Computed example of a mutant assay.
Amino acid sequence: MDTAPPFALLLDVDGPIASPVTRTVKPEIIALLNELGAAQIPIIFNTGRSDAFIRGQVMEPMIEAGMPDGLMVHAVCEKGATWFSFTAGGAGTVHVDRDLAVPSEFADDVRGLVSAKYAEHMFFDETKRAMVSVEQRVDVSNEDYRAEQERFDADALTLMGQHGLTAARLDHHAPGSDDEVDYRVDPTIISTDIESVRLGKDLGAARACERLRRDGIVPAAWFTMGDSRTDYAMADWLHHNDHTVVHVDVRPADGVPEKPYEIHTAAYLGLGPEVIHDDAGLAFLARWWDALGTA
């Protein structure tokens, strides 16, 4: 690229891009992603989702909507454990860091636990290559799921101990909760991820920058976007590595922490507190697209 892009986008998927209710992406978001990419804005997804989810819910809709020739989008999945790139021609090779994978014997036992005790409220995500994830069924209310999630998380921790694995349930308000364990049980609003403590949105940010450097791309600034406290780690990493970054929190109900960089919520756009998740994500993508037209 002859000139540095004015900004790059590092985007969580569940929440800001895909609806946590339907698990699908609005056509308006797909269209904006294609338009921003065509304008030479680098787009990298930084997600706990699997490569299969990104292919089905993001890549294929972008291609069907007329993804521009020459546009390459990158996806860092499973919080940095897997990654791949895609173009209008489809997905490239999926890379997997096997050193960061949860033992397969433990994964098998979690699958059995879900089947035997929790199948009415959640399902085992068979598409994950390194993490173990259990997700809310779409026909179950979130309130009912969250009650069962507490019990599942406790059972998962017990099961990890039986496998000789050291683990702790992540407290999103206690940064030291990963200390002295090898794995974490990370509850989100619609799932629980069981993963190596070496995974995280900061690792995803590092892999994103590495991918862009290989292409000779150094953005002038970054916008990161997420819907949970753990998503701030990507902006933290960028800031600590001397990048200019603004983080967008599309679900600030957990509280907006003090950070040394700018944080925007829907209120920044003059929108009310009811505008969250992919509604807020759509509004910010539209704002960034409009800014390109007036630059």
Rank of each mutant, 00 (worst) to 15 (best):
D2F: 11
L10M: 15
I17D: 05
P20H: 04
T22S: 15
K26W: 12
K26H: 15
A31N: 12
N34K: 06
L36A: 01
L36T: 01
G37F: 06
A39N: 07
I41K: 01
A52N: 11
G56P: 09
Q57G: 01
G66L: 08
G66C: 07
P68N: 10
L71G: 03
A75F: 00
C77V: 10
E78R: 02
K79E: 09
A81E: 04
W83D: 08
F84R: 03
T87I: 15
G89R: 09
G92Q: 11
D97R: 12
D99V: 05
A101F: 04
S104I: 12
S115R: 15
D125Q: 12
R129W: 01
R129D: 05
V132E: 01
V132P: 01
V134E: 04
E135F: 03
A147D: 10
R151P: 06
F152A: 01
G161F: 12
G161C: 09
G164Q: 08
G164I: 01
R169H: 02
D171L: 08
H173I: 09
V185E: 01
P187W: 00
I189D: 11
I190Y: 05
I190K: 05
I190D: 11
I194M: 08
R198V: 07
R198L: 11
G200C: 00
G204C: 10
G204M: 06
G204R: 08
R207S: 03
A220G: 12
A221Q: 05
M225G: 06
G226T: 02
D227G: 01
S228G: 03
A233I: 02
M234A: 07
H240T: 13
D242R: 14
H243N: 14
T244Q: 15
E262R: 15
G272F: 07
V275A: 01
H277C: 14
D279I: 12
D279C: 09
A283I: 13
A286S: 12
A295M: 07
